[in-house]
């Protein structure tokens, strides 16, 4: 009798870790951005995307609100803002 003991690739996406945020989320101001990609690099969730200047944004379905993207942005174009996550849609 064989039953699966393996997981399929990338299936963790089903797990919406955005619900973990506790009161803060990164706000991408998109004004000063120089497209250095540092925020993309340091996000432990790998949930920031963007290509050209001022297009960078987090996927709030997964963002845990750690704040490292804001800490690393050389032009302070990301700020951590208060959120009442239960009022926001995390879909």
């Amino acid at each position: 009798m064989i039953i699966p003991v393996t997981s399929k690739p990338r299936t963790s996406k089903a797990n919406k870790t955005g619900t973990w945020r506790s009161g803060k989320k990164p706000h991408f101001i998109q004004k000063e951005c120089i497209a250095c990609r540092l925020c993309v690099m340091v996000c432990p969730e790998g949930c920031i995307s963007g290509d050209k200047r001022c297009t960078y944004i987090a996927d709030y379905k997964y963002c845990k609100g750690c704040g490292n993207c804001a800490a690393v942005c050389p032009v302070a174009d990301i700020e951590m803002v208060k959120e009442e996550w239960w009022r926001e849609t995390i879909s």
Binding site: M1, I2, I3, V5, T6, S7, K8, P9
Partner: peptide
């Protein structure tokens, strides 16, 4: 690609032993 040797919780471990 597959992931082998994954973590299984109480919801799935016993079935592997049964199998």
């Amino acid at each position: 690609p597959v992931s082998m040797g994954v973590l299984m919780g109480p919801e799935s471990y016993i079935e592997t032993r049964y199998a």
